[in-house]
């Protein structure tokens, strides 16, 4: 899976934002914290949910099942706004 190319992001010190270009149905803005931003950035190249969980487990000190639940929730959120190419 991958983030659709119409979805673009920007990160500054305070937040990570994601919006959609062109005639995409989603016209809002996703404001993400650091971990959600991490997930979105990793979705910019072809990947899987499991791979992202692995990468996050390396980066953050948290139980694997907590990370897996977070990753799943955020990917579902992205899916619901049409941001994911399966």
């Amino acid at each position: 899976m991958k983030l659709k190319k119409e979805f673009v992001t920007h990160q500054n010190d305070n937040e990570h934002v994601t919006v959609a270009a062109g005639n995409t149905e989603f016209t809002g803005m996703l404001l993400s914290n650091e971990t959600a931003g991490f997930i979105i950035e990793h979705l910019k190249s072809e990947t899987t949910e499991d791979k992202i969980v692995d990468q996050m487990f390396e980066e953050y000190e948290a139980p694997r099942e907590v990370i897996a639940a977070d990753v799943h929730r955020i990917i579902e959120k992205l899916r619901s706004v049409g941001a994911i190419e399966e």
Binding site: K5, V19, A21
Partner: peptide, 8 residues
């Protein structure tokens, strides 16, 4: 802007 690059 319509292009993803300009939107970014």
């Amino acid at each position: 802007p319509s292009s993803p690059d300009k939107l970014a």
